[in-house]
C-alpha cells in the first residue's frame, strides 16, 4: 500500500458516496447513466471472482464487497425507487460494442488463457470505457448538476491515481502489471475532456456546461 493507491481507493469510495448522496438529496437520478452503472456491476462481478476462492485479505475483501453491493444498489435505486427521473431517451449509448470490444481485448491480452484471467482482463478493459455512456449522456444534455460532476471527477481520479501507484510499485517493488497499466491509461485519457471542463469551470465555481 502506498499513498497513491490509498488516495485512489478513497477517491473510488468517495465517488460512490457522492452518487448516493446526489440521488437521495435531489430525489432523482436525472443525469446519471443507467448504462454506465450497469457496466460497473459487470466490471466488479467479473473482476472480483476471486471472492469465491480467496485469499481474502480484509481490506481488499471489504472494498470488493462494497463495490459490488453499492453498484447493484444504485442499479436498484435507478430501476425502482427513482425510475421516473431516469433519462432513458437520452441514455442510449450502444454498450454492446464496449462489452464486445472488451471481450475481444481480454481474449487477446491476458496473463493466462483461463476463465478467471480472461474475466479479470475483460473487467479492466470494460472499466476503461464504462464511463462513456455517462459522458455521452452529459454531451447530449450539454450540462450537469455540480454534484454529478463531482461524482464523475472522483471516479476518474481513482484510476488516474492508480497510475502513480503503479509507477511507485514498478520502481520500489519491481512489480508491473501491463494490462492494468495500459487499460488504466486508456481510462484516464477517456476522462481527459471531462477533467479539462471540470478544472476550468466547476472548480472555478461555474456550472458544468459544454459548448453547444
Amino acid at each position: 500500500m502506498n499513498i497513491f493507491r490509498l488516495l485512489g481507493d478513497l477517491s473510488h469510495l468517495a465517488s460512490i458516496f457522492i452518487l448516493l448522496h446526489k440521488i437521495r438529496t435531489t430525489k432523482s437520478c436525472a443525469g446519471i447513466s443507467f448504462r454506465s452503472q450497469a457496466l460497473y456491476v459487470l466490471v466488479y462481478l467479473t473482476r472480483y471472482l476471486d471472492l469465491l476462492w480467496g485469499p481474502w485479505l480484509l481490506y481488499n475483501t471489504v472494498m470488493k464487497l462494497f463495490f459490488i453491493g453499492s453498484s447493484v444498489y444504485v442499479l436498484y435505486l435507478m430501476k425502482f425507487d427513482y425510475k421516473p427521473s431516469h433519462d432513458m431517451g437520452l441514455d442510449n449509448f450502444k454498450v454492446e460494442y464496449l462489452i464486445g470490444g472488451s471481450f475481444v481485448m481480454a481474449l487477446l491480452f491476458n496473463l493466462a488463457f483461463t476463465f478467471d484471467e480472461v474475466m479479470w482482463s475483460f473487467s479492466l478493459w470494460l472499466e476503461s470505457v464504462a464511463i462513456l455512456p455517462q459522458l455521452f449522456l452529459l454531451q447530449r444534455t450539454g450540462e450537469a448538476e455540480t454534484i454529478t460532476t463531482h461524482y464523475i471527477f472522483a471516479l476518474g481520479a481513482y484510476r488516474a491515481l492508480y497510475i502513480p501507484n503503479w509507477l511507485y510499485r514498478w520502481v520500489m517493488e519491481g512489480r508491473v502489471e501491463f494490462i492494468a497499466v495500459f487499460a488504466g491509461i486508456i481510462q484516464t485519457i477517456v476522462y481527459a475532456d471531462f477533467f479539462y471542463v471540470y478544472f476550468t469551470k466547476v472548480i472555478q465555481g461555474q456550472k458544468f456546461e459544454l459548448p453547444a
Partner: peptide, 10 residues
C-alpha cells in the same frame, strides 16, 4: 504478474 497470493489491487 499474478502472484500466488492473487490480485492485490482493486
Amino acid at each position: 504478474g499474478k502472484e500466488k497470493g492473487g490480485k492485490d489491487e482493486l
